[in-house]
Design a protein around this nucleic acid. Structure first.
Lengths: 141, 141
DNA sequence: TATTGTTATACTCTATAACTATA
DNA sequence: TATAGTTATAGAGTATAACAATA
């Protein structure tokens, strides 16, 4: 039995999340991004998101998000667009350069996580993904 | 099929780790700790650790760790002890108050993660923990 | 009044480079 | 020379409170 096995599911989840965070940090650094900036870019891959929604997704206070978006916008990776239907709101979307960086970073992280899962049999991987999906469904609900 | 299910194992792992990080952040905040401080305390639960080893575990440069330990020591949660056999080195250990906070925080996070896993059948939980353990074994090796 | 977002402020977190002390 | 750790510095990340603009 491994050390991890003894510690229970919760501890396994904590360690796993720490490892994933470190992978993310390494990949971010290799692209000259902070982990927070890379996380922001990856969140925008599927399309522009409003500031409020982005704050919920990233678990950030609105003022923290303002600063984060400011710095990434200054580097030309994202763009704020004023919402015409509600002139208070704005959407944050990737620029071409930002989209490229986001895609590359996401692929790098994916590759390293796939490698980490390399020992698992296909059936185990499928069950693992399904079990995680079940847990995550509980979060949104 | 859920949104998560479509995205593959790597994406599931990324989202899971983000959720765990948010849980950790919430629990830390409720104890008036930063996530980094709570992570440090939890790392010391099993016993004192040297600064170099701590840096490896937390994925931090030595100077970053110096500051983090400084701030937590100033709050009376940890204590540096000079190693008699190598007078350059020092061990960082929890104080009574630090140990209490660490235990409480760890229990809180554990409870919230267990809750998250609540939908899973016992057999699935066991398989999930085992699969994660297999992945983590690959990290250390 | 409520919501969206920014500004001001004060910390914390982090890395790089240079340093001290010990091995 | 190499290792353990600190200091100095600069920038990034974060929250709270107060604010402006719009709904």
């Amino acid at each position: 039995m491994t050390t991890t096995g003894q510690a229970g599911l919760a501890s396994a989840l904590m360690r796993l999340s720490q490892v994933v965070a470190h992978v993310f940090a390494d990949v971010s650094r290799s692209r000259d991004l902070t982990p927070q900036q890379a996380q922001l870019l990856c969140t925008l891959i599927e399309g522009p998101v409003g500031m409020s929604e982005l704050g919920r997704l990233l678990h950030l206070e609105k003022s923290s998000l303002t600063g984060l978006v400011d710095r990434v916008e200054r580097r030309g990776l994202v763009l704020r667009t004023r919402d015409p239907s509600d002139r208070r709101a704005s959407q944050v979307g990737l620029t071409c350069q930002g989209a490229q960086l986001a895609a590359e970073s996401h692929e790098d992280v994916t590759a390293r996580l796939e490698d980490l899962a390399g020992e698992l049999a296909p059936a185990d991987r499928k069950r693992l993904a399904a079990a995680i999906a079940t847990m995550l469904d509980r979060v949104v609900a």
